[in-house]
Design a protein around this nucleic acid. Sequence first.
DNA 1: TCAAAAGTGTTAAGTTTACACCCATGA
DNA 2: TCATGGGTGTAAACTTAACACTTTTGA
Lengths: 230, 230
Amino acid sequence: MNVKYYRGNTKFLVSIDCIIFGFSEGELNLLLFRRKIEPAKGSWSLPGGFIKEHESAEEAASRVLHSLTGLKNLYMEQLKVFTEENRDPGERVMSIAYYALVNVADYDHDLVLENNAHWRNINDLPELIFDHHDMFQVALERLRHKASTEPVGFNLLPEKFTVPQLQSLYEAIYGQRVDKRNFRKKVRTMNFLEKLEEKDKSGSKRGAYLYTFNKELYEQAIHLGFSFTL
Amino acid sequence: MNVKYYRGNTKFLVSIDCIIFGFSEGELNLLLFRRKIEPAKGSWSLPGGFIKEHESAEEAASRVLHSLTGLKNLYMEQLKVFTEENRDPGERVMSIAYYALVNVADYDHDLVLENNAHWRNINDLPELIFDHHDMFQVALERLRHKASTEPVGFNLLPEKFTVPQLQSLYEAIYGQRVDKRNFRKKVRTMNFLEKLEEKDKSGSKRGAYLYTFNKELYEQAIHLGFSFTL
DNA sequence: TCAAAAGTGTTAAGTTTACACCCATGA
DNA sequence: TCATGGGTGTAAACTTAACACTTTTGA
């Protein structure tokens, strides 16, 4: 049955690799780990794994993300397949790159440690195996674009966050400072960002008001012609 | 050698499928063909083919594009891999979608005929096999975005083109009318579009001035901070 | 001579940028 | 009391959108 139609064509190993972004203390980080198998065993690598017989690529990526962070239903997007014949010196493998956004308050720290994984600032990455640095570059560009036009950045923040936190997230994503007053002006136009009574005093003595992202209100706003830009 | 490291993992058939855009007489068209193999033999399909043992996906896509149109070095971009287990009812195949832009003045008409391929208006597509319509949707969105921010549209036009032609191309891509005076104003700011002495009289009695896209000038402009939007 | 497409500018509305001071609080 | 980060508005520059008439020419 399995060779009924397409007999004679070459089959390939296909893996997925994950560019996992996390935001913490004003810095945008990547979750990297020490590769456990040859070739290049022990080198820094993006987390990844082979796609199994009955899995889609998305399922494989979700599985890898879950096994590393303990989290399910992470925000995740396919980026690109890398298919150069010699990209992996061990054997021919095509790899599908995904990027994912993690709220660092949520993940399972012990699991990450067990896996020999570490958060590394995107501006201070170690050398990565194969074409993994290219994958990261594609991911960062995509994240920059996506975060500027869709409310995906909130996946990197806790449920409740302050405006200064949100601003510093965007500064980390874009790699440049943004004007506080102009930023807040834009936030004020987003009435799907609900201001709470509560303040977060962790960042300052005065404390900053907490906000939440309301998905329903966001969808209403979009429906009424609102277009997200930050 | 070939099973040194990754032994035991499942291998997959991997194909590429091409969404080939062509622009002619104010309409944006797709090059489709009648599938020659089972399953779904005879149904409308995107052109595609399996990736061969020593090929990258790009090389496979170039090969398929060349065999169908006689053209090399077409503008081409990877879109997305489709990996759902049952996307192809014949057997499990992962397929990498590429879109390509063809100047319809250039391609080999006989070759297209031989291959049983036909240009079909994007607003009047027949039913396509498998997930090929999804692939088209992704391609159209990407083309819209890309054409609005980078000068890729010129790949759909002959070397020399008129402003009304360029405008009608953009109207076809976006699926909506644009204001003539505002459009020309923007074109005037693009000094990498060189106005020639010649006129094209095919579209009107009066004739419209021909222009060419000058890549060197474009790159200079970009270097000086110009940002393309149309 | 007239139908059909090419070509041309101005104004109002909206968006983006730049910029400086007061407030609240815990140490 | 003071150092630290939170919070606020306005004006100028620029960009976008809307809109109507004249020109050229072959049939």
